[in-house]
């Protein structure tokens, strides 16, 4: 009985119910209840889907741009001494600059279109990727490098066949951080540089006092974020299962 009562779903349901009751008592569009939000979700459904499509498209583009440039750069910084020596403090310095602070400057150079937003997203995703790639490559087990040399691999082959796979678990962690940063910054950039996308939708509807629609947008973002997290976790299990299995084996030994 107590179990059922404290189940998260039950608590959530109770919270929604309480919210609905307060909303019914207040009877003003400025305090929408869950039913109003559901109604807005239904009414604006097609538009919401279109807007989140823009958001996701740019998030993916920014993430891809960052991954394709920053993972190789980070690995190289971790393997090549001189590059790491100058590169790492430079990256550490850039990392203290929050992504939204770059928006005004990017706007001056690239306007308010797709390119500007993708650049800011890429910058946000780049930081965890490059830092973790360098760290992973630097902490590569020395034996692995020796194995590469004993097999007569070239530097590039060692990077591709040994450094990259053994850095994968750490890169996966970085990719997870970069992906959520990409989504967050994608929405934020739309609120700051408005043209389209879910962030722009949120901004407009809330400024027009359509709070039910604003909440509907937030619900949609939350759902998309949850799905994204699940997808990443599932692909990690699929591709990196060996890593987690060997880790649990280690803790059990």
């Amino acid at each position: 009985m107590k179990r059922l009562f404290l189940h998260p779903a039950a608590v959530l349901l109770a919270a929604l119910l309480a919210w609905q009751i307060v909303a019914l008592v207040k009877t003003t569009p400025l305090f929408p209840g869950p039913l109003d939000v559901a109604g807005a979700l239904w009414d604006d459904g097609p538009r919401l889907i279109r807007e989140i499509g823009h958001t996701l498209r740019r998030a993916v583009a920014g993430f891809a741009l960052a991954a394709l440039t920053m993972i190789p750069l980070g690995l190289a910084m971790g393997r090549i001494r001189a590059l790491g020596f100058v590169g790492e403090p430079l990256v550490a310095m850039l990392a203290t600059l929050p992504p939204p602070a770059t928006v005004p400057v990017v706007m001056l150079f690239a306007g308010t279109g797709d390119l500007a937003k993708i650049l800011v997203i890429a910058y946000a995703a780049a930081i965890p990727l490059v830092i973790n790639a360098a760290e992973a490559a630097r902490n590569l087990h020395p034996m692995l490098g020796l194995v590469g040399r004993s097999l007569g691999l070239t530097r590039l082959e060692t990077l591709r066949l040994i450094a990259l796979p053994s850095a994968l678990p750490m890169l996966a962690v970085a990719a997870r951080m970069a992906a959520s940063a990409a989504l967050l910054v994608s929405i934020t950039s739309e609120m700051l540089l408005s043209t389209n996308g879910i962030g722009n939708y949120l901004q407009r509807e809330q400024e027009n006092f359509r709070l039910d629609a604003g909440l509907a947008g937030i619900v949609l973002i939350s759902v998309v974020g949850l799905i994204l997290n699940r997808l990443i976790a599932a692909s990690e299990r699929r591709w990196l299962g060996w890593h987690y299995q060997s880790r649990t084996a280690e803790t059990q030994a």
């Binding site: 934020t188 609120m191 962030g199 809330q206 604003g214 947008g217 973002i221 997290n229």
Partner: peptide
């Protein structure tokens, strides 16, 4: 899990 994907910017106007 519900709140983490929501960016700070999204709740500011409200």
């Amino acid at each position: 899990a519900i709140l983490q994907p929501v960016p700070p910017a999204a709740v500011v106007p409200m």
